[in-house]
Write a protein that binds this DNA or RNA. Structure first.
Lengths: 136, 136
DNA sequence: TCGTTGTTTATAATTATTCTAAAGAAGATT
DNA sequence: AATCTTCTTTAGAATAATTATAAACAACGA
C-alpha cells in the first residue's frame, strides 16, 4: 500500500506537478501487488471505477506518455489495435494469449539468458524482448 | 526469378483466384532474393512503381490479409503506428532500428535456442519471437 | 454464352491516437 | 493572501491506419 504522499513526492521528483488527476492515475497504476498490463482504454475505465472521479481521455494519454518517458511504464511490443503498457519496467518477457488478448509476465529465469550474436555497426542494443504467443 | 505461371498456380492451390492484382502483388512480394519487410503503405506504393499498374488500397489490405491467413506472410510484433509484415515466414527474430524504423532479420543461430520454462494450463505455445531494439 | 460466385474498387465508417486552444490549477514572488 | 507565470486539463477537432459497404467487374464452371 503506497500512500498518496509518496505519489506526490514521486511526481515532484520527476518535475511533474502533483495534480489530482495524476495522483488518481498513480493510485490505479502503482497501488497494487502484482505487475499490471493495460491499454489506455482499460486505464481510462478503471480510473472512473476505482476512484469515482473522471479523468479526461486526453489526460490519460498525456500522463501515460509522461510516465513512460520518465521510465515508470514500459511499452510492450505486440501487434494489436491498441498499445499495451506494463507497470513492471524491469527487463522481462511476456506471454500473449491471443484469444483472450491478455498479457502474462514471464520471469527472466523462465526464458533464460539471450545472447545476440550479431551486431550492426554504429548501433547498440537498447532492449531484447521475447513475446511468446499462446493458443488453445 | 519466379514466373507468373507459378504465382497463378500458388494462388489456385490456395483457392484464391489469380487476378491481375494478386499476381502483381505476388511479383512485388515474392520475386526477390532477400526477405522483405514492409508496411501496407510501402507495398501500395511499390506496386505502382514496380508494375506500373495501380491496385486500390483496399485490395492491398485484402490481399495481404489473405496471404497472411494462408501463411505466406508473417506479421511482426512491433509497436508502431503501422503494421509490419515479412515475407520470411520461418521462425526467426528481428532487430528493429528505432530511429530509422527499419527491420533487420536475425538468423536463429544469431540468437540461439530459447526454452520457455513456464507453461499455462490449457494453452500451447504458438510462436516465440525476439525483438531486439537498436539505438545509436 | 450465361449464371454464379469471388474480387476489386471508391468511398464511407470506425478506431486509436494526437493536436489545439481555452479554462483551470500549482508554484513562485511579493 | 494577491498576483503572475507556467504547467495541466479538457472537450472537441484533426489525423491516420484500418475495416466495412455495396456496386461494378472478372474468373470459373456448366
Amino acid at each position: 500500500m503506497t500512500s498518496k504522499q509518496e505519489f506526490i513526492e514521486k511526481l515532484r521528483n520527476s518535475s511533474l506537478r502533483p495534480t489530482k488527476q495524476r495522483i488518481n492515475i498513480c493510485e490505479v497504476l502503482f497501488n497494487r501487488d502484482k505487475t499490471f498490463h493495460f491499454t489506455i482504454n482499460d486505464l481510462f475505465n478503471l480510473i472512473k471505477d476505482k476512484t469515482g472521479e473522471k479523468v479526461s481521455l486526453a489526460t490519460v494519454y498525456n500522463t501515460v506518455h509522461a510516465f513512460h518517458r520518465k521510465g515508470y511504464l514500459k511499452e510492450i511490443p505486440i501487434n494489436s489495435n491498441q498499445t499495451y503498457f506494463d507497470t513492471n519496467v524491469t527487463d522481462h518477457h511476456h506471454f500473449f494469449d491471443v484469444k483472450e488478448e491478455k498479457l502474462i509476465d514471464l520471469k527472466n529465469e523462465d526464458v533464460g539468458p539471450i545472447e545476440i550474436q550479431k551486431s550492426i555497426p554504429g548501433k547498440k542494443i537498447k532492449s531484447v524482448e521475447v513475446l511468446v504467443k499462446l493458443e488453445d
